[in-house]
Design a binder for these strands. Sequence first.
DNA 1: CCTTAACTTGCGCAGCGTGCAAAATTGCAC
DNA 2: GTGCAATTTTGCACGCTGCGCAAGTTAAGG
Lengths: 238, 238
Amino acid sequence: MNPLSSPDVLGGSDAASPSRRELNKAATRRAIATAALGLLRDKGVGQFTVEDIAAAAGISRRTFFNYYSSFEAAMASVADGFLDRALEQFRLRPASEPVLESAQAALMALADPATIAPMAEFFSLTQESPSLARSELEAWDHCTSQIIDAARERLGPRANELYLRALAGSVISCGKAAMTVWFEESDSDLSPASLTRLRQYLIDAMGLLGSGFASQTAPTTLPATHPSDSTSSTTERF
Amino acid sequence: MNPLSSPDVLGGSDAASPSRRELNKAATRRAIATAALGLLRDKGVGQFTVEDIAAAAGISRRTFFNYYSSFEAAMASVADGFLDRALEQFRLRPASEPVLESAQAALMALADPATIAPMAEFFSLTQESPSLARSELEAWDHCTSQIIDAARERLGPRANELYLRALAGSVISCGKAAMTVWFEESDSDLSPASLTRLRQYLIDAMGLLGSGFASQTAPTTLPATHPSDSTSSTTERF
DNA sequence: CCTTAACTTGCGCAGCGTGCAAAATTGCAC
DNA sequence: GTGCAATTTTGCACGCTGCGCAAGTTAAGG
């Protein structure tokens, strides 16, 4: 029946085994996520049911729940897919590189039109739906866990747990802060100039983290409340 | 009827107006949260319904939903109450103090037996319930928003938004990391010695943040992360 | 071809979350 | 106190969720 039924050439047990079943399941997962995102776009948040998603994906309602335990879970998988790209980049960095630099480089990979487009859409939807906001939180948290694992792997199993968690959490927080600020000020603007700004935010955020948010400790006497002002941002402004 | 019905002495329009109705609602809120926590303790997670909580709190199922939109929301309010204590402390710190020091002092207030007891219980339940884990995430996120507001208020409205968000997020992440590590290693041990360790973790985490997680870039001597040393891990390990 | 395991589907059911309107409670002025 | 108005509680109904179960359907392998 199927022209591709021959066993995989590699027969690898370690790597992914692209059996027909696995492929189908992966395809179904993607179909569900795509259908859900599409309905979100077309009908708006809360204006459709799981049954609608299932219909759009060409499966039954029951099968939907075989793949995702809830609509939120399906959405979280979208965000996860986005953040996983950063994870992937992080793992590719040389182990000798300082973690913060690796993180910065990894986050930089997100400032790519094709990569960030779905996330930007997700972000905008997040603003108006507590349910999606929670999905986003979960995704960031999931990413944090992954970073912790990756960093532990890099630094060795005897790495200080507090150090690992504090660092990973802070890195993610800063990445999130950069994306939030970027998104709030340039609503889904994916132009090259806008993406350049996002990159700069990511760099700035990592810089702040690396310097211990030091802008305040230096000037022992705080300089009143008058800055040189200006609309721009580069000044740390206390 | 009520011996306390006289109008509040302050007559403040801005402050909370403790009218009888408000007091009753607050009492109901507390009753619900208490009942929910009690059932969680007695029956275990997922072994009871909203109707059970309502019965335990002496109200109807419908009224429960007048106060909380879900069981998770009720649980998040518990965690919020805990973290709000830290917020309160933060706002009490002098505005001239560096933010990181204020944050450290505020977090220190959490390492108090009476304060942390409910949270420790909440934490332990969190481990075995994705639903409660999400409530916890929401609580941390809520706290982050509050910190951002508080810091913005302190630094002036013209503060760099990226700086604010990155700093607040990192502070919370580090506080969370300290509590997580503490909780994982001393399961709900509220002894003075254990709480001292928690305080040290909080101090260490803030120290890491303030020094930009510098242990790898330059061994310039990190600011005394050695308490008197302890069981093992204090070495930064890379 | 036939068997086994994995996956899908329909069905049923307990529980969730909410709109609605009646009933109870509270605050306030007379 | 009595009555009125505003607020809160409650029961009811309804659609949706999430899951167990068992029967169908499809891939994998002898």
